[in-house]
Design a protein around this nucleic acid. Structure first.
Lengths: 333, 333
DNA sequence: TTGTACGCGTTATCAA
DNA sequence: TTGATAACGCGTACAA
């Protein structure tokens, strides 16, 4: 071995008694395409590589090829099953393209630049920014450093960046309207913070269309954690004029509502209808199963294919992909 | 810019009117030059780099330095909040060392080699294998490709690999003994598969120490998903001779037990005590909160520091780190 | 099949 | 003192 480190292509070449060029052709698979090599030679090279445990070197390869065959999923807390699903599907598609997937966690926004070095200085051919990261971060550097960039965002609009939009507002409106038409009189709204305003606006839209006013007492903020959410809903239910329905801007809030209701002996959906947002897997097996606004199925494959299309041709015009949200009816509403 | 791609050091050098060597000294900071560069020159270089948006190139740097300043967390489904916690703490420690963290998802074991290319061929200075991955995968190639390797495993023993052990068996025994001493007569055990046998053995240990036989009817396998687990527990509770306590090898199974119990009107902990394993965050806010075996607090910082110690000096002898598990008492048992 | 220039930043050496 | 020259790491791809 060269020095005492990893096995390099030179080691293999020496062992097989051929040039590094030949080894490169054989081991990178390019041999069948451009230069057909005689079988005995291939064998010798393969054998030597195997015997020495040759593994190649990404740095050298991607320096030369200007490709890393790597895509990144950039995410920040809070994370959920949603991200896992995206990751797994990404891996499926990436594997079919000969790519690997890495996750890039951004722990703190003030240290984002450090975390994003993998993207901005590294060689990642493409990256997907999930959650609201693309709204909090400046993607300029990332865009110049990758061939393809994709972001979940309702507001972002950047040349050369594909964006995934959803119809959160109209979907939440649909959910609220459903409750109104089912005869619910006092429909509460549960939110995490004052971000995500589009979801709240959908709720407002529906009330207004039905000629109802928004009762500020029924709009509760602060369900940042599940513990908090349970407390908030308990408080709501303990009031003099409790709601007969709750729309939550997350499934987490929805589960909290179910829990608080069970806690107080309030029957769901008879006395209280609950609708969550996100349509997470847990919604199907909570007690009762949670009606939830969100993607009907978490299907990201098409989206990831679009990323690869841009990796192949970065000059493609920026696209907007819609991942439609619908009301997924289950027992809680 | 060179060609029409990213800004390279050459571009900066040209713009600043100095050589690439000088730029490298200024921008990499680590100028161990015999003599520091004069301030005016530094300024010019910094300014030019900023103006051109120079971002460096990881591939070139790590090719030369034989360091990527990257560590990886390798994981496979199912993932939980546990992994998130590890990731965040890793990022904290890594940032202090000037490193970044990436996640490497392994979707399918039969495609593991593909997923692990980032480790085996890439330049990751260190990697942490979580879950049972280190038992399912051959780490030989990974070990030769990184300076430091760390794995959660009860069985692995490999030169140059630090291993995190836990006392799962004795901790599960402790939990079971606690139930016995609390007067529980029929204690069931809920498992995912027939892996993780040490947890089951802890349960057996405790029964034997108490002079009890293992009732095969009370040992149930198949709680691979939460849905399944609920069905399994319902079945258990519907039998002619239902258990008065359940020990689950996961918190997921514990939650399923709580749910199935609520479903059938069985009171927890009065009629049924439930203990989970993993001590996940959810255990603190389930209804009732779930008594769970696991780490008292999820503290990984020390562990990650050990990884960096090995990155600094790969010749360190392999270490075994113990992350003690205890019984965390909450309302369910 | 092979020689070798190349991609790009790092660093040891050397000249002004 | 100030800063340039060039070798280097390693796989790739074109010309020979």
């Amino acid at each position: 071995m060269s020095k005492e480190g990893r096995t390099t292509l030179r080691d293999v070449a020496a062992a097989a008694g051929v040039s590094v060029a030949t080894c490169s052709y054989v081991l990178s698979g390019r041999a069948d395409r451009t230069t057909p090599l005689p079988e005995p030679t291939r064998q010798r090279v393969q054998e030597a590589a195997r015997r020495l445990g040759y593994k190649g070197n990404t740095a050298a390869r991607s320096l030369r090829r200007q490709r890393s065959e790597l895509i990144a999923i950039v995410y920040a807390p809070p994370v959920g099953p949603w991200l896992d699903q995206l990751t797994w599907e990404c891996e499926d598609v990436a594997a079919a393209h000969g790519y690997s997937v890495i996750g890039v966690p951004v722990r703190r926004l003030d240290r984002a630049a450090q975390s994003l070095r993998v993207i901005t200085r590294g060689h990642v051919d493409g990256a997907i920014f999930v959650g609201s990261l693309s709204d909090d971060l400046d993607l300029t550097a990332a865009r110049r450093s990758t061939r393809a960039l994709m972001a979940f965002s309702d507001t972002l609009r950047m040349p050369g960046v594909d964006v995934i939009r959803n119809n959160a507002r109209s979907a939440l409106a649909e959910a609220t309207t459903y409750l109104i038409e089912a005869g619910r009189e006092r429909i509460a709204f549960l939110s995490h913070s004052n971000a995500r305003e589009d979801r709240y606006l959908g709720y407002v839209d529906a009330l207004q269309r039905a000629g109802r006013a928004v009762d500020p007492d029924l709009v509760r903020v602060g369900a940042a954690s599940r513990e908090d959410a349970v407390l908030v809903v308990r408080d709501l239910l303990a009031g003099p004029n409790p709601p007969d329905a709750i729309v939550s801007e997350s499934d987490r809030g929805g589960f909290a509502a179910l829990q608080a209701a069970a806690d107080r002996g309030v029957k769901v959906p008879d006395d209280l209808a609950v609708i969550g947002t996100g349509n997470t897997r847990e919604a199907t097996y909570s007690l009762p199963p949670l009606t939830s606004v969100g993607m009907h199925q978490l299907e990201f494959a098409e989206m990831v294919e679009a990323l690869f299309a841009r990796i192949d041709d970065p000059t493609l015009p920026a696209r907007e992909l819609l991942m439609p949200w619908v009301l997924n009816h289950r027992a809680s509403a």
